[in-house]
């Protein structure tokens, strides 16, 4: 094959024909490039500009005429407790939710590794939450955790005494329903990723461990988990990025209340930009968050780049 393509009998892949092809290639990618320009690059440039201004749409000046304040926005953010807390809270939510999702997903996936009746139906049921529109899922949790909602009702049934607790207006506990909604909705995705990984493990390594007399626990930790590591790190990366942007459950359940105690970064930015209209300040916050997200991603993605 190689010899034939080298002696020029047939066009080889490493020597594309000149003339017609490059223009055609450009024509193919141009719409995508233009779209990218419109929705990513231009807004990014605008944000870079806004981040060094104190522009507010209510001031009735066009954004390009805003007064630069240079780096004062970043200085203010550094000492803005509400912002710093939102960042810390978001990282906490990411850590707890993603860890819970992974644990639950691993457990479920192990159950589904063996063939049993109605397995396919059960998989479809388990992944249902993922298909629900996040706002609707959040609304369901809003009703569940209502002061007189089913959750409190069930607790009172269990403890045998009336139980009324306003989950969503308690500064400490309001975060719990939000995180539960997030975990409930996105464990299925983690489950699918982990199950696919488990099903594609080299079966004979597992069988070899069995005939060597290893217990299921030993096989899981010494053989399966190391083989699964690449899949797990990808799943963790995907879910961490997604959870970092958590918005729907926060917006529906608490809007960041009470007293900003459930405000995550996206909620903070929504409030700042569309409630207080501090566009320049929030643009600076968005830039900072971008830096944080990219750093987190690089750390999590490191094992994967090392792998190749």
């Amino acid at each position: 094959m190689t010899d034939r393509s080298r002696d020029g009998l047939r066009p080889s892949l490493d020597q594309p024909r000149r003339g017609f092809m490059p223009r055609f290639n450009i024509a193919l990618v141009l719409p995508a490039q233009l779209t990218m320009m419109a929705v990513v690059i231009v807004p990014t440039l605008i944000i870079l500009w806004l981040a060094i201004t104190d522009w507010q749409p209510t001031q009735a000046i066009p954004w390009y005429d805003a007064t630069p304040v240079w780096f004062w926005n970043f200085y203010d953010l550094w000492y803005d407790e509400r912002f710093v807390n939102a960042v810390g809270r978001t990282l906490f939510v990411v850590g707890v939710c993603v860890a819970l999702e992974l644990g639950l997903a691993l457990g479920l996936a192990l159950l589904f590794l063996d063939e049993w009746p109605w397995r396919r139906v059960a998989v479809s049921i388990i992944i249902l939450p993922m298909m629900i529109i996040p706002v609707d899922a959040a609304n369901a949790f809003f009703m569940l955790f209502n002061e007189r909602g089913p959750i409190n009702h069930m607790i009172s049934l269990v403890i045998g005494a009336p139980f009324e607790f306003s989950w969503l207006s308690h500064p400490t506990w309001a975060m719990a329903p939000i995180m539960m909604a997030e975990v409930w909705q996105w464990t299925p995705l983690m489950f699918l990723l982990v199950l696919t990984g488990l099903m594609n493990l080299p079966q004979n390594q597992v069988r070899a461990a069995i005939v060597l007399g290893a217990s299921p626990v030993r096989i899981f930790f010494k053989v399966m988990l190391p083989l699964l590591a690449p899949v797990i790190s990808i799943a963790l990366l995907i879910r961490s990025i997604e959870t970092f942007k958590i918005f729907d459950p926060v917006y529906i359940l608490t809007r960041g209340q009470p007293g900003g105690s459930t405000e995550t970064i996206s909620m903070f930015m929504y409030n700042g930009a569309f409630v207080y209209f501090r566009m320049g300040y929030i643009a600076a916050a968005a830039l900072l968050v971008l830096v944080v997200v990219i750093s987190v991603c690089l750390v999590l993605a490191r094992p994967m780049t090392k792998h190749s």
């Binding site: 004979n204 390594q205 069988r207 070899a208 069995i210 005939v211 007399g213 053989v223 083989l227």
Partner: peptide, 17 residues
């Protein structure tokens, strides 16, 4: 697990990690 039978697989199934 309990049969005490050794098995060498066609693909060897050496624990790669």
């Amino acid at each position: 697990r309990k049969r005490r039978i050794g098995l060498v697989f066609q693909d060897y199934a050496v624990f790669s990690k």
